[in-house]
Write a protein that binds this DNA or RNA. Sequence first.
DNA 1: ACGAGACGGAACGGTTGCGTCCCGACTTCA
DNA 2: TGAAGTCGGGACGCAACCGTTCCGTCTCGT
Lengths: 209, 209
Amino acid sequence: MTEIRPRGRGAAVLRQTVTDTIVAAAVAELAETGYAGMSMGAVARRAGTGKAALYRRWPSKEAMVVDLIDVFASRQVPAGGAGDLSGDVRAYVRAVADTLSDPVVMRIVLDLTAEAARNPGLSEAFDTAIRQPRRTACERFLRSAVERGQLPADLDLDLALDLLVGLTQWRVLNTGQNVDDSYVEATSKLIIQALPLCLGAGDRRGVRG
Amino acid sequence: MTEIRPRGRGAAVLRQTVTDTIVAAAVAELAETGYAGMSMGAVARRAGTGKAALYRRWPSKEAMVVDLIDVFASRQVPAGGAGDLSGDVRAYVRAVADTLSDPVVMRIVLDLTAEAARNPGLSEAFDTAIRQPRRTACERFLRSAVERGQLPADLDLDLALDLLVGLTQWRVLNTGQNVDDSYVEATSKLIIQALPLCLGAGDRRGVRG
DNA sequence: ACGAGACGGAACGGTTGCGTCCCGACTTCA
DNA sequence: TGAAGTCGGGACGCAACCGTTCCGTCTCGT
């Protein structure tokens, strides 16, 4: 986050507060109107501040949203890999379902996914802050399960990751259905049973996801 | 599509052509800039026409895009259900992969998915023209597989549909990876093997997907 | 006590968008 | 042949947005 070190008005307390207020307003505005539709004036209005306060912190709308992405990056996937594949999968599915079922998060993720196909800066920020860490975390506990023999040695990692990540996010992001405990349980169970089926040549290489 | 019955300039030939040119331009513009960023002036410019020609056909930008959705609806899922579950799945995965790997289609689908969370009109059009027919088609060949005993009688249909639709679309829409024959083959095989695992209480009700 | 600096608020110029209207050119149907 | 109706093109009024620049106020550090 761009640092502002005010000497003026209520520095000790407000140094965080003003920036945080703007960030919160920007997140809400982003969820409501989308990246393309979001206006800096509306963010300022919602934050109860002037536009100048925004441009004192970020040079542009894009830079601001890139910073916002890091805010979401903090809500991350549990570590896992401690010895229980079944538990790791369940924890992952639950974490993703909990995070993404928040309508604000859901809308922003959908919107930035679409926008990233158009905007290289956002795409890179989204990849490095969200997608790669998430994929890396899954990769780690899958690999450790292979090492323990809980999954076959010739596991097709790409396919397994598609199954794990894709199936988990699909319903939350693309259907209007409720995501409750029974859904988490059923999906986790299916993934756990299907993971050992992810075999194959498995030499497809990928970057993102 | 809103009908225009010109008596003027090259009616016989151009009656289709002008409308089609506008539609093509709108599709291209929609893919490049997204719904929120798309301007009617840019569509007209790209089509080599005046804005009046657009507003003679549609009352607004939203109405125009709603009509565009029907254009995509024509590219639909194969029927299936003829007796070979494995073949149905393979055909479905291939059809979806082929359609969505076109960057224009991919961007529009991503964009409208995000926009639909905000715009009720687009959401409804997208649902009825794309999601429901697709889901219904899958449902049909899954049900017929159950009737033939190729899938268990207590199949959790929602879960099976998540597996089929979600897994197929995930990589195409959300990763930068190539989607080639080996991917289609591996994904199809996984789905076919995992479908019988979709059991459960299965009383989660849903609308879309 | 005083200067520094961030604050909310308002206005600016320039650009872009939507949706409407009008124009002269053109082609078809009756 | 003439009326009808679409055509591309351009201009319009109105609104919104971006990013900048002021203003007067307020609170700090020194």
